[in-house]
Design a binder for these strands. Sequence first.
DNA 1: GATACTAGGTAAAGCGATTAACCAAAATAA
DNA 2: TTATTTTGGTTAATCGCTTTACCTAGTATC
Lengths: 333, 333
Amino acid sequence: MKITMKDIAKEAGVSVTTVSHVINGTKRISEETYTKIMSLVEKYSYVPNTMAQNLRQQNSNMAALVVSSFPDSYITSIVKAVGERARDRGYHLLFINTNENQKDEQEAVTLLTSRMIDGLILSPTTRDANYLQPLIERKFPIVLVNRYDPKLIELPWVTADDFQAGYDGTYHLIGHGHRNIGIIYNFPEVTTTTDRLEGYKEALKQSGIPFREEYLVQGYGSIEGAALATEKLLTAHKEITAIFVLSDRMTIGTISALKNMSKKWPNDIALIGYGDFEASTIIDPPITNVSLPPDTVGKTAFDALLNRIQNPNYNKHIQLPTSLVIRKSCGCN
Amino acid sequence: MKITMKDIAKEAGVSVTTVSHVINGTKRISEETYTKIMSLVEKYSYVPNTMAQNLRQQNSNMAALVVSSFPDSYITSIVKAVGERARDRGYHLLFINTNENQKDEQEAVTLLTSRMIDGLILSPTTRDANYLQPLIERKFPIVLVNRYDPKLIELPWVTADDFQAGYDGTYHLIGHGHRNIGIIYNFPEVTTTTDRLEGYKEALKQSGIPFREEYLVQGYGSIEGAALATEKLLTAHKEITAIFVLSDRMTIGTISALKNMSKKWPNDIALIGYGDFEASTIIDPPITNVSLPPDTVGKTAFDALLNRIQNPNYNKHIQLPTSLVIRKSCGCN
DNA sequence: GATACTAGGTAAAGCGATTAACCAAAATAA
DNA sequence: TTATTTTGGTTAATCGCTTTACCTAGTATC
């Protein structure tokens, strides 16, 4: 049925050691035995059992990426980038999506880190990342990406400079004369929200605009959630003239709500999104975004993981600068 | 450093057998030893080595999904759905993206199928799926999804009824009076292209419209590729009045090209896409799509895999019916 | 009081590889 | 000719767990 080294060895009339050496090229082998074994390998299309190899060798050349906000198009692009970089570095990348579900995340991480992989890139739900503590103590290589957790300062992370992102978007809107700027965020406890909000507040403060809690609405990261949030926000606060949507998927929902309410952007409501989703340019008028190439994030994260694998004390906290991609939705042009 | 059962056993003063029994609940154990061992497990946050378990037990409760056209939003949704269904069924789902690269795909499949996982769901590049032959002979559980390969008839698959999809989209356009209908496809050798094209041809034939090879342009599955293809198509063939884009990501490219060329849809060019991508509704005018809930595809595919795992001879070929989601881009309303 | 269970535990084999240590025969060196 | 390498291979330990078979002492049965 399933063919093992032993079978090959028996049929070839040699020891498994020899077979192993042939396959791995770890020893000088006579031409004769070499071809004999290789032809058997071919014949049975034998492939070594990865589990056994990993068990014995205590490493796997596999890394994993665990993410909860999938399929956000920004995350999706990060996934792709991490995968590519992993391949370039000779690693296999396993990806797991946990749907913003803390329990699933924990399960996935536990599974993977129980010696399946050499390292983990994690975009945590951060509702409670305490379960990571034992892994940290054990020095299991982990890098946080996109979202981080300030309590897990021992871990390296790669994120956008979300404070700056929030600041820049807000500042830009203020520059266009907006003083009542609504925010649609996905979840209150993730740094991609909190940091951007801090930036938002700072920009308001510097312009002497009072911060109003009521302008912040949760969109739950979904299109429908954002649509609902947008509607709620705009009906409750007619004075709002601009909306800053903190994640790309939700921007679709917000736009959809605006259309429903027959509000035009940028004239009725100026709009800035985050993350430069692919449809940004073909929406009419096209959407201005605060953006950071997800490609950069992904590649940087994987390299950070490699660093952490090689040096368990590596724990740089990388915050990549974002930029404002100006299109028409914010009122420019 | 890394703590094993042996360590726990030693410190508890019992055999590893006992530890195993405690952890797995496979035998009656005295209250006393039970708590002693559990407290040590807790103390060291011990987690069994998955590799060793899998090796010993000859199964892993893990399945994998290998896909090449990522991050197409349609595939992305399938990925999500498969993951959810896997979780519901007590499996862990590993996802690997191979970027339309045959070699990467083969590598990934080889890795995974060398006893890492219990089953595989594959959306193949189908440039050459011969490498699957040994796996098929070995009866390794594989299910094809989205794309299939007619040569691999022994394998079960779950796809859209792509012939019907091509037919329906085309038929609808013809119904609106279009006779010169351009097609943007991603890759010529995948069934999602070939079958849809067959449907397209059939619809033309039934309406007595001659098929013209020149109306078919390759968009390489990318936004840029589709934009280029669209431009080429429309400048070469001014008589074209409708375009059917065969995959969602490319629709963005086509729209972008239309905007560049200052062509309005549906008046200058009627438009039908495939797959109902999330921004369809907020584009103005909104996009008509031939669609099939990716959720259904994903869940069906995983269930098929489960069937195949339980019964190595299960090889149903499931083609799920698509439907036409009519919005304004095709000229309706 | 002999017999039969039961409770609680252990020893040891095995999953499928890798690898250090060893070895005999042939080849080379001195 | 004797000593030393080299060649091509083998033996056996090991990775960390599961599981079958076996054991002993205490309980129940009659």
